[in-house]
Each structure stands twice: as structure tokens, then as C-alpha cells.
């Protein structure tokens, strides 16, 4: 009977043998990992941070203002009495429309201007134009330049641009002047000819412009 109870010590011996073998395998794997990974070896090390530097983005802002004023067209003083204070008067009073284009002072960079001044012709305008009774001229102030006036039949337009990039805070102007001569192209009296269009709107000039960022100048 006693000899048949022996199997238990055999299992214990098996476990006792496997335990160190397992440990050896684990140690071997760890050793291989250490040998193969020199980057994991700890060297001397130091770190530092630099002070934060705040950076902000600047913009580009354009402003356009439109001013209208009545101007004398050169009639002889005292030759005609004009009671009204506004409106075109043949041979006496015209209208000047001035657009002032500015690169805002808080813009971060210079800007290059490009745009168009235009107006659609009204029926009254076309009527006067057909009789040679409307005169239009355009001019640019310092910093701006204009192209030729284009008459497309249904409207008038001319291009506008800056002669050089507008620095922040800088501006330039373009102006359109309208007038009715005292006499028409065939010598007719304009005052009589324009009676039918009296107090009629002739045109509404507008400026559509874009200010585009220009590279910073060499002078910074």
C-alpha cells in the first residue's frame, strides 16, 4: 500500500523544477530587452523652458468716405440769380463727388488699392447726354490714380488704384465732377432744354474698392 502512495512527491518535484526555469526565462527576456534598448539607459539629463512669447495677428482695414459738394462752374458774377442751394444749374453750378480711401491707422501693413468708380445712367442722364448737356470729369489726388472714363451706354465707370501701397493711416482721393454747360452742343440754351429733367436724379456714383496687403517695405 505505502509504495502506491508515491505520485504526490513526483508532482512537487516537477513544480520545483519548472519554477526556476520560468524565472530564468523571464530574466533572459529582460536581459535581451536591456541589451537591445540602449535608449532606455538612464544618462544625465536636464531640462529648461523659455519664457512664453505672445504673438498676435494684425489686420488690414480700409475705410471709404464719400463727400458731395456744389461747385461753381464759372458763370459771370451777378449774371444769374440762383435761388436754390442744391442741384446742377446749367452754366452756374456743378457737383463734385469725392471719395476718400484710407488704410486705417490700426492696420498692420500697407495695402494696395484697386477698384472702380461707377454709376448707372438714369433716363434723365441719357436725355441730357443726348443733347450734349452733361459733362463729366474725374481726377485723382496724391496717392491715387485713375484710368480712362468708360461709357458703356448704360453706365459710366473708371478704374482706381493707388500709385504705391497705402501705409497704415494714409489715404488718397478720387473725385468726379458733373456739370451742365450753359449751352448745348448745338448751341441751344441749356436752361430751357433741361426743364423736363428738372429735379430728376441723374446718377449715383459709387466706389467698389479692395485693399490688398502689400509686402513690407525694405525700410520696414
Amino acid at each position: 500500500m505505502g509504495r502506491h502512495a508515491a505520485p504526490a512527491p513526483v508532482r512537487l518535484r516537477t513544480a520545483a523544477v519548472l519554477l526556476p526555469v520560468g524565472s530564468a526565462v523571464v530574466a533572459l527576456v529582460a536581459a535581451v530587452a536591456l541589451i537591445g534598448g540602449p535608449a532606455t539607459i538612464a544618462y544625465l539629463n536636464a531640462t529648461a523652458e523659455q519664457p512664453a512669447q505672445t504673438i498676435s495677428a494684425g489686420g488690414l482695414t480700409m475705410t471709404v468716405t464719400k463727400a458731395e459738394e456744389w461747385v461753381s462752374t464759372g458763370a459771370a458774377a451777378g449774371s444769374t440769380v440762383v435761388k436754390s442751394t442744391a442741384g446742377l444749374v446749367p452754366g452756374i453750378r456743378g457737383q463734385k463727388i469725392t471719395f476718400t480711401i484710407a488704410n486705417a491707422a490700426d492696420s498692420a501693413v500697407p495695402g494696395t488699392l484697386s477698384g472702380t468708380v461707377s454709376a448707372a445712367k438714369t433716363a434723365a442722364w441719357s436725355s441730357l447726354e443726348g443733347q450734349g448737356l452733361i459733362q463729366t470729369s474725374a481726377a485723382a489726388g496724391a496717392g491715387c490714380q485713375i484710368g480712362p472714363l468708360s461709357d458703356a451706354g448704360s453706365g459710366l465707370s473708371f478704374p482706381v488704384s493707388s500709385t504705391e501701397p497705402l501705409a497704415p493711416g494714409d489715404s488718397c482721393t478720387v473725385a468726379v465732377t458733373l456739370s451742365i454747360p450753359a449751352t448745348g452742343s448745338s448751341g441751344q440754351d441749356a436752361a430751357t432744354a433741361v426743364k423736363e429733367t428738372r429735379l430728376s436724379a441723374l446718377a449715383d456714383f459709387q466706389l467698389a474698392a479692395t485693399l490688398t496687403q502689400a509686402p513690407r517695405s525694405e525700410a520696414g
Binding site: Y43, Q50, A52, I55
Partner: peptide, 11 residues
């Protein structure tokens, strides 16, 4: 607005 940071490591 953004902040520029930088970390330096000497190893």
C-alpha cells in the same frame, strides 16, 4: 493671439 513656448532638454 497665441503663445510661443519652447522646451530644451540636455541629455
Amino acid at each position: 493671439r497665441v503663445d510661443l513656448d519652447a522646451s530644451y532638454t540636455l541629455t
